[in-house]
Computed example of a mutant assay.
Amino acid sequence: MSSEKSGSKLPITAIILTYNEEKNIRDCIESVYHWLDEIYVVDSFSTDRTLEIISEYPDVKMVQHDFENYSTQRNWAFQNLDIANDFIFNLDADHRAMPELADELRNHFSIGIPQNINGFMASRRTMFLGRWIKKGGHYPVYHAIIFRKGHGECEQKNYDQHFIIHGESIVLKSNVIDIITESLSTFTERHNKWATLEAAEAIAYSKEMEAGRVKADKEGNPMEYRRYQRMKYYSYPIFLRVFLYFGYRFVLKGGFLEGKQGLVFHFLQGFWFRFLVDAKIWEMKYNQELNESKTGVKR
């Protein structure tokens, strides 16, 4: 680890969330340590070596807060940390800011950020078992990564949360690396949990739930257009949409070109996971109908 930072720092505060991230946190911090003015780690009471590694960086500020869900943790940080800068960079421990991203942001800040610009969007570069997943419609996928303090938040969702930028944003050409799994066991365990959350949300969805979330907009920014595509997906018949989606990703969008890692990733993430979500939607509705038939009370 470098003992000193070098070069001028950008007036940006990074906020990194952790829980038992000893395998990731060092590389995450190192990816922003030399060019960001302030770094916070919000830890959910890790029990591995995460805190020990963070302590090797004396100017990284660490606070601990009980974890309820991702959205609540992020928004708690925005509201309670003593953030020194006008712009906030949101990272997870398995994210890495690429050097090109630092250079691109330096260019923008050297010119000056217009007052109407309240954030920056960048694509994530998914790394799966050592391979960059470029095909299958999985790249580029844009996320709000930086927003002006007081002009952004994390949407209140149980799964697949995005950051909302209130106002205009700049779409960056550079990427944030997203190392999405350390093993297939971890990958499938997480997706099983997320499938339950997404199924429940798909059943409960209503127009009223759109408040405080990224809006679905065919003509909007890259995040809003992707949310529109997601809602369009759920308008198709259950189960049939899974096969259509996998065919689109694996065949039409070239997922089959990405070798064994691509086959495993696109099948598990683009078919198995989506099928599991639909199966859980079906199961939840079946159990609800069964309960209603027994009690005579419709929900």
Rank of each mutant, 00 (worst) to 15 (best):
N75S: 10
E283G: 04
T188P: 05
I133Y: 02
E189G: 08
D86C: 04
A102C: 15
I111C: 05
D160T: 06
S235N: 11
S206G: 05
K294C: 12
E292I: 14
Y245P: 04
H143F: 11
S6F: 12
S293M: 15
D48F: 08
Q64C: 11
E201A: 12
E4F: 14
F87I: 01
E292V: 12
G212C: 05
L17R: 10
F243V: 15
G254A: 04
T47A: 03
S2E: 14
S293K: 14
C154Q: 07
Q269I: 02
A279V: 10
R124S: 07
K61L: 13
V277I: 15
E292L: 03
A77S: 13
R299C: 11
F78H: 05
S8A: 07
R131H: 12
E38D: 15
V176Q: 01
A202R: 15
L81K: 02
H191Q: 03
D103K: 13
E4R: 10
L17G: 14
K298N: 09
K294G: 03
E68Y: 10
M223R: 07
F120W: 03
Q161L: 01
E289K: 11
R148H: 03
E68W: 03
N107W: 06
M1L: 11
H191M: 04
W35S: 13
F187R: 05
Y159I: 15
E52A: 11
Q156S: 12
F250S: 05
D82I: 08
G152F: 09
Y40D: 06
Y286E: 10
E100D: 15
E153D: 06
A122I: 01
A195S: 15
K215F: 01
I111V: 14
G220V: 03
D94T: 11
I54A: 00
W76K: 08
I170N: 05
G259R: 05
N118C: 12
L240N: 03
G112D: 12
H34S: 14
K260P: 07
T295R: 06
F273I: 02
L36K: 02
L276Y: 06
F275G: 07
Y142H: 09
K23E: 14
I111Q: 09
F273E: 03
F45Y: 15
G259C: 08
K23W: 03
R226W: 06
L252I: 13
F128A: 04
E4C: 13
C154Y: 00
T126V: 11
I53R: 06
K5G: 06
M223D: 10
L240H: 07
N85Q: 08
Q229K: 10
